[in-house]
Measured scan of single mutants.
Amino acid sequence: MISNAKIARINELAAKAKAGVITEEEKAEQQKLRQEYLK
């Protein structure tokens, strides 16, 4: 099960992506976390 901290990070990265200020490194982290969440 995914931790609350990881869910919070997913939401934080989603907000950054929506604002258009996300880095390529953060995009990769976001994809990794989303895949983990979906498992």
Rank of each mutant, 00 (worst) to 15 (best):
I10T: 03
L38W: 12
M1R: 13
E36F: 05
T23G: 02
T23Q: 02
E29V: 02
I10V: 05
K39G: 14
R9W: 02
A8K: 13
A28V: 10
A5E: 11
A8I: 12
E24G: 05
Q30W: 15
K6L: 15
K18Y: 06
N11Q: 14
G20C: 07
A19W: 08
A19L: 12
K27I: 12
A17R: 10
K39E: 15
E12M: 07
E24K: 08
K27M: 11
M1H: 11
E36A: 05
K32I: 11
E12N: 04
R34W: 15
G20S: 02
I10Y: 14
M1S: 11
L13K: 00
Q30V: 11
A28D: 11
R9T: 01
A8N: 10
I22G: 01
A28K: 13
A28Y: 09
K16D: 00
K39R: 11
Q31V: 11
K32W: 11
K27Q: 08
Y37F: 11
R34L: 15
E26T: 00
N11V: 13
G20H: 03
A14L: 09
M1N: 13
V21L: 12
E12W: 04
K32A: 11
A19D: 06
A17Q: 11
I22W: 03
I2W: 07
Q35D: 14
K32Q: 11
A15S: 07
E24V: 10
Q31N: 11
Q30E: 09
A15G: 05
I22Y: 02
I10F: 12
R9Q: 02
T23D: 03
I22R: 02
A14Q: 10
N4E: 14
L38K: 10
E26V: 00
M1D: 09
R34P: 00
V21K: 12
M1K: 13
M1L: 12
A5P: 09
E29N: 01
L38A: 13
I2H: 08
A15H: 06
E29K: 02
E26L: 01
T23W: 01
E26I: 01
A14H: 07
N4H: 14
A17I: 04
E29C: 03
K27D: 05
T23N: 05
E36S: 04
A14S: 08
A8T: 08
Y37E: 06
T23C: 04
E25K: 06
I7H: 05
I7M: 12
A8E: 08
I7S: 06
K32T: 09
G20V: 02
S3A: 10
E26P: 00
A5H: 11
A15E: 08
Q35N: 07
E36Y: 07
A5Y: 05
A8Y: 05
R34H: 13
I2E: 10
A28Q: 12
E12K: 04
L38E: 14
G20T: 02
E12G: 03
A28S: 09
K32M: 12
E25Q: 08
A15V: 08
K39I: 12
I22K: 01
Y37Q: 08
K32R: 14
I22E: 01
E24S: 06
I7N: 04
Y37K: 04
T23M: 03
E24M: 06
S3M: 08
K27P: 00
V21Y: 05
E36T: 04
K39A: 15
M1V: 10
Q35Y: 11
K27N: 04
A17S: 09
K6I: 15
Q35R: 15
N4Q: 14
I7F: 05
K32F: 12
E25C: 05
E36M: 07
A28N: 09
E26H: 00
E36K: 05
E12Y: 07
N11K: 15
Q31F: 08
T23S: 10
A15T: 07
L33P: 00
E36H: 05
K39V: 11
A17M: 10
N11M: 15
A19T: 07
E36L: 09
E29Q: 03
E25I: 07
Y37N: 06
K6A: 12
A28G: 05
S3G: 10
S3D: 09
E24A: 10
G20F: 03
K27V: 11
I10C: 14
L33R: 02
